[in-house]
Design a protein around this nucleic acid. Sequence first.
DNA 1: CTCCGTCTGAATGTCGACATTATTAATTAC
DNA 2: GTAATTAATAATGTCGACATTCAGACGGAG
Lengths: 226, 226
Amino acid sequence: MAAPVQKTYDIYATLPAQIAVRIGQAIVENEFKPGQKLREVDLAGAFGVSRASVREALRILESEGLVTILPQRGAQVTALSAAEVEDIFDIRAQLMGLACERLVAALPPAGRPELERLCAELERSLDDAEAYARASLAISEFCVRNAGSRRLADLILSFGRQTARYTKLSLSTSDRRRQSIANWHGLVRSILAGDAKAAEGFARQLVFDTRDTALSMLADGMAKQG
Amino acid sequence: MAAPVQKTYDIYATLPAQIAVRIGQAIVENEFKPGQKLREVDLAGAFGVSRASVREALRILESEGLVTILPQRGAQVTALSAAEVEDIFDIRAQLMGLACERLVAALPPAGRPELERLCAELERSLDDAEAYARASLAISEFCVRNAGSRRLADLILSFGRQTARYTKLSLSTSDRRRQSIANWHGLVRSILAGDAKAAEGFARQLVFDTRDTALSMLADGMAKQG
DNA sequence: CTCCGTCTGAATGTCGACATTATTAATTAC
DNA sequence: GTAATTAATAATGTCGACATTCAGACGGAG
């Protein structure tokens, strides 16, 4: 008797899920600003669906941390304090370390050239902040999705999306991109060499560096404002 | 100018949240079994509310991992494979390590006697599996909630609830409870001594031991069935 | 006897309307 | 002129009904 087939259900199947994806993109790409109110009637009108579907979409986005719902007061784009940004980066660093430590054993042989290709793509994108952000996300996603745990991957990528705007901020200078690439090189080398502990270290450092830059840039921004 | 007051909104305020709490309790306490279907109409009738409220409640529980929603096929109590149980324990061990490492610096002086009291409560409950499970949850929650990150605490406790039935299974023998207490003693001692690295180690070991026992008991159960 | 297609019943998906609550603007008292 | 109160507005909370899709029973062909 063969094992029962694990059917995969397309999360885009339902209407609320589609709405959630589109609103989520707008948030991650900073079209919807932190703190901005998301009125159900407005969104329902914009997407041509009923409020019920929008409500479900907002619940989905709340579970991803992109939206904050306050009872009787509606939904708004989650606005993070500097302390919260730091907190999320710290947790993600820990989880990214775990994922990359696992990746060393879990990466199938066929994934090795793909890993090198994604790393080369990083170097090609060194002069273009937008392209580098995309390439960085691509190799991160590849590593995390091949670490053997769907749950861990979703968690890390969810935290990544919550702080996407700060990561992008952090990678806006070429100096930082060079520092980032150095870490990625170390990580890829460790993975290909089978050194799990070193991989964990590089993965965590990668996130820590991003965190430190983002926080200092935020602090500068605050200093200018206040 | 004083900082604006951060209002706290009671998550029990809305009807769906109340429904979610009650269904969630039933799941954690194993009254609703893994894989059991949760029909919206049934639940709506049982709680005397409309389907819309039940739907929102089920979404909340899905975000906590207690319920799995399959598009067009409804909700059911999340059923975890042995591999998934192991995965959750592993992630929780990592996060618990991080939390307890932070706790060493974050625990306010007033929390020290409380920590010792909760530890003593563990010993008092050594002969009663039910009481020990409660005491274990209490000290875990205390540690995690005083580690300085609401986000991290919620995450750890959420994973804990998802595997609550297996933790309970693991702590069903007095031998295991003695092993658990030894780890808790080590953890509390490390915290009070200010040794963050040792605290991290004990915290992880605590979860690892629970994982190992639960998995071997699950394997035995499977062997009997198959 | 087995397998496939159809059909029936029941569940979820989606919607619009009403009830309730928060916000804001106007008004009045001081 | 300011502050507190109140009324109007606009948002969310909750509900019942209709549309759509899925699971299983039934029946017929091979």
